[in-house]
């Protein structure tokens, strides 16, 4: 299953990833991780911090992402 990485641009700060709040390692962010799994996991083997998405507090952002994902599927 292909997971679209939310990477919008390479100039300046690269989006589509976030810094792990515990170890500052880059955590790749995908639609699948956010919309299906509902969590992000730090890939640093000595950290493995789990960032659990608080769905109730992120409703607007989640619906925006769903809309965006549908739009991207349509054009691809």
């Amino acid at each position: 299953m292909k997971h679209t990485t939310l990477t919008s641009h390479d100039q300046g700060k690269k989006s589509g990833q976030m810094m792990c709040p515990n170890c500052s390692e880059a955590i790749p962010v995908t639609f699948h991780a956010l919309l299906v799994e509902g969590k992000l996991i730090c890939k640093n083997p000595s950290c493995k911090t789990v960032l659990q998405l608080n769905r109730a507090q992120s409703q607007t952002a989640i619906s925006s992402m769903k809309k965006l994902q549908a739009g991207l599927k349509e054009i691809s």
Binding site: L6, S8, G16, M18, N22, V29, T49, L51, Q52, L68
Partner: peptide, 26 residues
């Protein structure tokens, strides 16, 4: 997002982080 953060005294504290969606938008 919520996650567990290790405190300097060795305890784990539940922390909340809010990230603007614009950071991820493709």
């Amino acid at each position: 997002f919520s996650y567990m953060r290790a405190e300097p005294d060795g305890t784990a504290q539940l922390q909340n982080v809010e990230i603007p969606l614009v950071q991820f938008l493709p």
